[in-house]
Design a protein around this nucleic acid. Structure first.
Length: 834
RNA sequence: GCCGAAGUGGUGGAAUUGGUAGACACGCUAGAUUCAGGGUCUAGUGGGCCUCGCGCCUGUGGGGGUUCGAGUCCCCCCUUCGGCACCA
């Protein structure tokens, strides 16, 4: 055994052995309990970054520990391989997207292998492979069949830089989630997945996801945005051909008596019929057009300028008979509720501001009990609960109660119905891009939209496409692809040339891993039953509402298609923090990037893994620090030295364990060993607190190292000391093996073991050994620490009390004052209250 | 504005049920190794006072409170980060 540790040769050696022995294949045995450990698969951008290293190191420890605990572990890896960067590479450098992607995958796979991650590579999944995206198309057809996929013209979020549409979830603060360009509105005909059909269930099931971080659930709940209220129909006051009423949605039916005007979104279909023929029509038309053209962000930002225009028409409040003017207002959103609102300026801040600006009447219908509000002097809307006034038969009723009573009244009179509204919009999946899954439909002049028959799947993405980055979608410009016969009548027709959002790919990949080879169906239901749900899903918080919501939706759709029985894909979720350096997220532009290849080259994969796990708890941001990396590396060096210096004599005792009647040094060594087992095991079970688990291993090695240095440890030492030391070192190696697997295997072998450390059973702590024999009792006077005494564990309260009061350091502190109380916490402290 | 998370030494972070604050690591200081450097090892390291005793005071963003005892529980406030942001 060399006196210095050579990480390069050792790491390569064990990676090959693991691979040759197929150690990490999921067995699929029914006799053992299963664990499905999954990390979010990467986009093959070219190279892995430190965020990946951290993510995959965490997941690998989880997978390895469960394996050692006897579970049949599924721990797969794959590639989220469709996406825009591949097209950009093609445009910038003329490399075909497929080639660029596959080359990146090959390189990154090599990087992951160099990290010693325990993946079952036989299940590798690549989403840009036709064998994979065929099933995206198949799901699309199933959803089309069930009305869960549909096409409509709508105003969409257009990213001018990516030249494609974005789903609502993919717009962050008015900017593209990927390239940060300002998003603009654009009217397009698009395919949608009807995620709103599952809004209620997606919301309700958040309560069942007890293994998820609360903040992610909060974000999902907010995103779904359920609100319940009433839809009320307001008849038009003047005759308008073909129209007779305006439907509005409100969550405040208790304020119905305070309506003083109505506001329509400028996009509302009623605007044109209302104004047609009126003298002010042209003015209103122009104003509405300007509002529609307003910058989307400015229009939806709070504090943004509210403005509007009077249509010249009126509606009638169905409860009071009062005639109120109909306005068009920029702040009314066309896609929420009915795109029209009743305005109650006294009790809604937006309506209040609008009313003040245009001198519209303000009528108070709710007030704090006994304090009349005066509309003339109000500085803002009164939105708190209160008691109804000026509300006909409902005056005097609390606003809380009035909500129900007025809703009942509205329904009874046939004026409207209770309704639930969601902020969640349907998921627009059309992308005007090349490198994605073709949407399997054909447009026929005679037959209309015709789905591609299942037997003709996959609709292959053509490879000989010219990508210029200019003009229309690349597929639309490729006649060989776009021209196709109608599947129904055979006439010349055109294919859909949009591709699917890549989030479709990642919405079910975890199911594909359970049976990646199936070519007759997306996955084998029996295998999915065995492995699903994913027990531990680990990845970045940035997918809190994107990927994680879409996957939940898909799972429910697949359940309703009868393909799976579970309705939730991820039992528990760990959102790991970002990797930070010099106060900022690592990025090329900031020049604070740490390259994993260079790190592995210099220190080895074990060091890279260990530091990623040690520097912070998994869910918190990790501050990268090169000195800290050195520290992790030194720890491994100490292990190596400890073993190499004692190896010779330890070999004779390999695998032997002490008898159990140890005292003195042997007992102390054993206590350290079993305390380490207990701590590492508990930290792992307590939400994967891997940083403190590693600290416990460091404490243990410090005990072993110090002992080896202080005593003349060797073949001549007493048997119980030798065996306790061997137990300490061997246990350390086994406990460390999930964190730093390569050095652990090497040291394990050097200690005379023919087995793999990775396959060793996880050790169990002996509680009798962990318990300390002597404990230090803290003695306090009035809660302040005054003395420390050592006692055997389990000393009775009375003895502790007596000894504390007799303590020479305590007596002067009491100073003859009367003792009011003595609190004794066994094995911990005595507090004398005077 | 609303929702959520957090605030502990020079730094990253521990403290699991209200019971010794600062585990572990980095950094720093001193020493050892025939000491160029590096490596390795040992000791010390929250702040302040000091009669240098294994002494006293103080200390977990700030201010109150509950308690024999609070980093931990309650109330108010401040700061930072993340999400949502005219959703009727």
């Amino acid at each position: 055994m060399d006196s210095r540790y050579n990480h390069s040769s050792v790491e390569a050696k064990w990676q090959k052995i693991w691979e040759d022995l197929r150690v990490f294949r999921a067995a699929g045995e029914t006799g053992r309990p299963k664990r499905y450990v999954l990390e979010m698969f990467p986009y093959p951008s070219g190279r892995i970054h430190m965020g990946h290293v951290r993510n995959y190191a965490i997941g690998d420890v989880v997978a390895r520990v469960f394996r050692m605990r006897g579970y049949d572990v599924l721990h797969p890896m794959g590639w989220d391989a469709f996406g825009l960067p591949a097209e950009n590479a093609a445009i910038d450098r003329g490399v075909p997207p497929a080639r660029w992607t596959l080359e990146n995958i090959a390189y990154m796979k090599g990087q992951l292998k160099k990290l010693g991650l325990s993946y079952d590579w036989s299940r590798e999944v690549t989403t840009c492979a036709p064998e994979y995206y065929k099933w995206n198309q198949w799901f699309f057809l199933k959803m089309l069949d069930r009305g869960l996929a549909y096409k409509k013209v709508s105003v969409v979020n257009w990213c001018p830089s990516c030249e494609t549409v974005l789903a609502n979830e993919q717009v962050e603060g008015g900017r593209c989630w990927r390239c940060d360009a300002a998003v603009v509105p654009k009217e397009l005909s698009q395919w949608f997945f009807k995620i709103t059909a599952y809004a209620e269930e997606l919301l309700a099931d958040c309560d069942r996801l007890t293994g998820w971080p609360e903040r992610v659930l909060t974000m999902q709940r907010n995103w779904i945005g359920r609100s319940s209220g009433v839809e009320v129909r307001f008849p038009l006051a003047e005759p308008v051909p073909g129209e007779k009423e305006i439907g509005i949605f409100t969550t405040r039916p208790d304020t119905l008596y305070g309506v003083t005007f109505m506001s329509l979104a400028p996009e509302h279909p009623l605007v044109e019929p209302l104004i047609a023929g009126l003298p002010e029509a042209e003015k209103v038309r122009e104003a509405a057009a300007m509002m529609r053209a307003e910058d989307r962000i400015a229009r939806s930002a709070e504090g943004g300028e509210k403005h509007g225009v009077f249509t010249g028409r009126h509606a009638v409040n169905p409860l009071t008979g009062r005639k109120v003017p109909i306005w068009v207002a920029n702040f009314v959103l066309p896609e929420y509720g009915t795109g029209a609102i009743m305005a109650v300026p006294a009790h809604d801040q937006r309506d209040f501001e609008f009313a003040r600006k245009y001198a519209l009447p303000i009528e108070v219908v709710i007030g704090p009990p006994g304090v009349p509000l005066d509309p003339k002097t109000m500085a803002e809307a009164y939105t708190e609960p209160g008691v109804l006034v000026n509300s006909g038969p409902f005056s005097g009723v609390s606003s809380q109660e009035a909500k129900e009573k007025i809703s009942d009244h509205v329904e009874a009179k046939g004026l409207g119905e209770r309704r639930v509204n969601y902020r969640l919009r349907d998921w627009g999946i059309s992308r005007q891009r090349y490198w994605g899954t073709p949407i399997p439909v054909v447009y026929c002049e005679k037959c209309g939209i015709v789905p591609v028959p299942e037997k003709d799947l996959p609709v292959l993405l053509p490879e000989d496409v010219s990508l210029t980055g200019k003009g229309a979608s690349p597929l639309a410009a490729t006649d060989a692809f776009a021209a196709a016969p109608c599947p129904a009548c055979g006439a010349a027709a055109r294919r859909e040339t949009d591709t699917m959002d890549t989030f479709v790919d990642s919405s079910w990949y975890f199911l594909r891993y359970t049976s990646p080879g199936r070519d007759d169906r997306p996955f084998d239901s029996a295998e999915a039953e065995r492995w699903m749900p994913v027990d531990h899903y680990i990845g970045g918080i940035e997918h809190a509402v994107l990927h994680l919501l879409y996957s939940r939706f898909f799972m429910k759709v697949l359940r309703d298609l009868g393909l799976v029985s579970a309705g939730e894909p991820f039992e528990s979720l760990l959102t790991q923090g970002m990797v930070i350096k010099d106060g900022a997220k690592m990025s090329k532009s900031k020049g604070n990037v740490v390259d994993p290849d260079a790190l592995i080259e210099k220190y080895g994969a074990d060091t890279a893994r260990l530091f990623s796990l040690f520097a912070a708890p998994p869910e918190k941001d990790l501050d990268w620090n090169d000195r800290g990396v050195e520290g992790a590396h030194r720890f491994l060096g100490r292990l190596w030295r400890l073993v190499s210096e004692n190896r010779e004599w330890m070999l004779k005792d390999a695998g032997r364990r002490p008898a159990g009647d140890e005292t003195g040094d042997a007992r102390k060594l054993r206590r350290s060993t079993h305390a380490a087992i207990k701590k590492v095991t508990e930290d792992f079970d307590r939400g994967f607190q891997l940083n403190t688990a590693i600290a416990a291993l460091m404490e243990h090695i410090n005990v072993l190292t110090r002992f080896a240095a202080d005593s003349s440890l060797g073949p001549g030492s007493a048997t119980d000391v030798r065996l306790s030391f061997v137990e300490g070192v061997e246990t350390l190696v086994v406990l460390l093996s999930p964190f730093a697997p390569h050095i652990s295997e090497e040291v394990w072998a050097e200690l005379g073991h023919a087995t793999l450390a990775a396959m060793e059973p996880w050790p169990a702590a002996d509680p009798g050994l962990v318990r300390a024999e002597d404990v230090e009792i803290v003695v306090q006077v009035n809660g302040k620490l005054r003395s420390r005494l050592t006692f055997p564990a389990g000393t009775p309260e009375a003895s502790l009390r007596e000894a504390a009061l007799a303590d020479p350091k305590i007596r002067p502190q009491i100073g003859g004052r009367p003792i009011r109380k003595v609190i004794v916490v066994p094995d911990r402290l005595v507090n004398v209250v005077v």
